[in-house]
Amino acid sequence: MSTITPHAIAAHRTAVCDWARANGLDPDVIPEYTSIVLEDGEQGIIRYRAFVLDAHGRKQQDPVAPHQVLTEERTAPCVVPPPAEAVSA
């Protein structure tokens, strides 16, 4: 298992966003303050959190924590390897 930390996302934002898009993910819905986890190697599964959007594409407020944006865990297949500089073991 490998991780792309919030620090690495910030430090390598362009490369991480390009990689996310290449894997069919929308980097605009992935919070910068959460990690992205790669399971089963670089060609395995991407596990990440994403903002929950309403029908108009707006971020929803978390009903449990009213001052936070609602997120959910998602997975996607990793078809393009992540940028090496952004990944930590």
Rank of each mutant, 00 (worst) to 15 (best):
M1F: 06
M1A: 12
S2Y: 10
I4W: 08
I4S: 08
T5V: 04
P6H: 06
P6T: 11
I9L: 09
A10D: 11
A11D: 15
H12L: 03
H12N: 14
R13I: 02
R13V: 01
V16T: 10
C17V: 04
D18W: 02
D18F: 03
D18C: 03
D18A: 15
W19F: 08
A20Y: 03
R21I: 14
R21P: 00
A22L: 08
G24F: 08
D26Q: 04
P27W: 08
D28K: 04
I30H: 01
I30N: 03
E32M: 13
E32N: 10
Y33K: 07
T34D: 13
S35N: 10
S35R: 11
I36N: 02
I36L: 07
V37C: 04
L38E: 08
E39P: 00
D40Y: 09
G41M: 07
E42C: 01
Q43M: 12
I45Q: 12
I45T: 15
I46E: 00
R47Q: 13
Y48R: 05
R49K: 11
A50D: 03
A50F: 02
F51K: 00
V52L: 04
L53F: 07
L53R: 06
D54W: 07
K59E: 13
Q60Y: 02
P63C: 07
P63Y: 12
V64L: 10
P66C: 07
P66A: 13
H67T: 14
H67I: 06
Q68C: 12
V69P: 00
V69E: 06
V69S: 09
V69N: 06
L70A: 12
T71H: 01
T71K: 01
T71I: 13
E72S: 09
E73R: 02
R74E: 03
T75N: 01
A76C: 04
A76M: 04
V80H: 15
P82L: 05
P82M: 07
P82W: 05
P83G: 06
P83C: 08
A84N: 01
A84D: 11
E85H: 01
A86L: 06
A86P: 03
V87P: 03
